[in-house]
């Protein structure tokens, strides 16, 4: 096993690989969890484009939908938010830092803020009325549900009346926080229970780890 340990260590000194100890210190993950995530990340990265430790949008979509070409507004937004450097690919450090927000131990404030940025489609610093309508319409077009434009308008109106406390036609971060406080289920999908037992799902870290948590 000495050989596999050595080759694993050499293999990990690759472009884009960040020290798990540093990543663990900056996120909700333990060092072993970061190492387990590395195994997952390597699998995702090599699914289509073999260019090392870079996760492309097609590979991200393939993992989410079992299809690399499916267009999805929210998968696009999540990818763009994970791509912190905005260079069109997700690097390992970006993957860990972003997924950390979905960890059961991450703060509610981080989750609320991520959801706000997700829904702020045009990154204006506000969730605007037309963005709410665009998201509802996009989801309806993906589903079998059919609603008339009047019904969609009334759903969006009702939501804006409740969320847009200042009445300026858009939801700011403060208003969003208050709205989520009234409807905590809105950030339910900001927590992935899977992340609690990532080391059980990806146990190969046991052979490769250099650190015991």
């Amino acid at each position: 096993n000495c050989f596999s340990l050595m080759s694993s260590r050499v293999g990990r000194r690759r472009l884009g690989y960040e020290d798990p100890t540093i990543l663990a210190s900056e996120t909700a993950f333990t060092v072993n969890e970061v190492e387990a995530l590395y195994d997952l990340f390597k699998k995702l990265c090599s699914s289509i484009i073999k260019d090392g430790l870079l996760l492309h949008k097609e590979e991200f979509q393939l993992a989410l939908f079992q299809s690399s070409s499916k267009q999805n507004l929210f998968a696009d937004r999540v990818f763009d938010l994970f791509d912190i450097k905005r260079n069109g690919v997700i690097e390992f450090g970006e993957f860990v830092r972003s997924l950390s927000i979905f960890h059961p131990n991450a703060s509610e404030a981080e989750k609320i803020s991520f959801a706000f940025r997700l829904y702020d489609l045009r990154q204006t610093g506000y969730i605007e009325r037309d963005e709410v309508k665009e998201m509802v319409s996009a989801l309806l077009s993906e589903s079998d549900l059919e609603l008339s434009d009047d019904v969609i308008e009334s759903i969006v109106d009702k939501t804006m009346v409740e969320a847009d406390l200042k009445g300026d036609g858009k939801i700011d971060q403060e208003e969003w926080k208050e709205f989520v406080a009234k409807h905590p289920s809105l950030i339910k999908n900001m927590t992935l229970p899977y992340l609690k037992d990532i080391t059980i799902q990806f146990p190969s870290f046991v052979l490769n780890t250099e650190v015991q948590d």
């Binding site: 997952l40 699998k43 995702l44 393939l62 993992a63 989410l64 939908f65 079992q66 999805n72 507004l73 929210f74 998968a75 696009d76 937004r77 999540v78 997924l99 979905f102 959801a115 997700l118 829904y119 709410v132 998201m135 509802v136 989801l139 993906e142 589903s143 759903i155 969006v156 009702k158 939501t159 409740e162 969320a163 709205f179 409807h183 289920s185 809105l186 950030i187 339910k188 999908n189 992935l192 899977y194 990532i198 799902q201 990806f202």
Partner: peptide, 25 residues
């Protein structure tokens, strides 16, 4: 069924369900 547009959005968006990342292994 949904109290507001965001409940609809967060419940219906499969693109937001990252658990698939872990099931794809």
């Amino acid at each position: 069924k949904f109290l507001n547009a965001f409940e609809f959005i967060s419940s219906m968006s499969s693109g937001f369900d990252l658990s698939n990342l872990f099931e794809s292994k």
